[in-house]
């Protein structure tokens, strides 16, 4: 117990450690704050036209399909189309029809919009009385927001990994590791203290992040806590493994960077590409954060089977990682 007290004291003095645990919480607050900002202009199509080409009526017509940017010369229009930051489409008028200019590097959707525009211009008189049924949709940004929140939660849960790894590497660099050798403390006690600190702070950071960013149904709160506990436990173990393997701060940073990229990218790609039921999708569950991510998205969408599945997978992962960790420990002791 006394050992844990000293570990906590070391954490209190370590601003970096406190900052890294609070970072996901700050991100969650920021995301909640900007949630109200209208980002729908990102979904709009942008058109560039030359001032002398178009009559005000034509510009009004174009404005019904996107945002119109008016330029003085043809060269300005072409420069804007070629600007790599935007997907802007140039529109030219020749006689009674229009032509669309593209840079050729657009995504398929924008090319399709460009090729359809002259035909739509031809039929501009016929669009008066048509029946349209618009189905309400939870807006795109709301969906993105939940994906962001899930990613931030993964960062929070796996912060314990970063902390444990960096802490152990800096102990190695500062020579504390030699002092530990002569302290009246068994290896087991030392390991437990380290896992405990990364685990507890990972849990706390995740719980705070959840409080600030998610409004969950009551029945999911205990499940969420279980998911947090399992993820933080695995991440603390991964952190310990990295700390053991890395022998310098830079190599430690490399390992942490690679594992963070894998932890974030694998579930994100699997989710965005709907890989769930395919073989590749199933293989993604080999990375523990995939189950966490799917579990969080399951809770947000009220999909209980997905949540149950992710809890089972995370429990299996916890056992596997713990066994792996113990095996490596024993091998090291024997050698």
């Amino acid at each position: 117990m006394g050992g844990i007290f000293y570990q906590l004291k070391a954490v209190r003095k370590d601003k970096m450690c406190i900052m890294s645990f609070f970072l996901p919480v700050v991100l969650a607050i920021l995301l909640t704050a900007i949630g109200g900002v209208d980002l729908s202009s990102l979904e709009e199509v942008n058109f560039a036209v030359c001032k002398q080409d178009f009559t005000p009526e034509d510009i009004e017509w174009l404005k019904t399909y996107g945002i119109v940017h008016i330029y003085e010369t043809e060269d300005d229009v072409i420069a804007k189309i070629n600007d790599p930051a935007t997907n802007i489409l140039g529109v030219q008028k020749t006689g009674n029809s229009i032509k669309v200019l593209v840079s050729g590097d657009e995504l398929e959707l924008f090319k399709e919009i460009a090729s359809s525009l002259p035909a739509i211009y031809d039929q501009r008189g016929d669009t008066n009385d048509i029946e349209v049924e618009v189905l309400p949709q939870p807006n795109f940004i709301a969906n993105y927001k939940y994906v962001f929140i899930a990613v931030i939660l993964i960062i929070a849960m796996f912060m314990g990994c970063v902390f444990n790894a960096m802490n152990m590497v800096s102990e190695k660099e500062e020579g504390v590791v030699f002092i530990n050798e002569i302290l009246p403390m068994t290896k087991k006690q030392y390991m437990l203290q380290k896992i405990f600190i990364g685990f507890i702070f990972g849990c706390l950071s995740s719980i705070l992040t959840v409080c600030f960013s998610l409004r969950l149904a009551l029945k999911y709160i205990p499940v969420m806590l279980l998911l947090i506990v399992l993820s933080a436990f695995i991440s603390a173990l991964v952190g310990m493994l990295i700390g053991k393997l890395a022998d310098g701060i830079l190599i430690g940073i490399t390992y942490v960077k690679i594992s963070m990229i894998i932890f974030i990218a694998v579930p994100l790609i699997s989710y965005l590409l709907h890989l769930g039921e395919t073989t590749v999708g199933k293989l993604c569950y080999l990375i523990p954060s995939t189950a966490t991510f799917e579990g969080i998205m399951g809770m947000v969408n009220g999909n209980t089977t997905e949540v149950e599945k992710s809890i089972v997978i995370m429990t299996l992962h916890s056992i596997l990682w713990f066994v792996l960790f113990l095996t490596i420990e024993r091998k090291k002791e024997n050698s």
């Binding site: 729908s40 979904e43 709009e44 404005k63 399909y65 945002i67 048509i130 029946e131 807006n139």
Partner: peptide, 18 residues
């Protein structure tokens, strides 16, 4: 009759015309 999920006003106009 055209049926679509709401995107934005201009995008919806374009999708219907398309």
């Amino acid at each position: 009759e055209f049926v679509l999920y709401y995107g934005s006003n201009t995008i919806d106009n374009h999708r219907i015309a398309y």
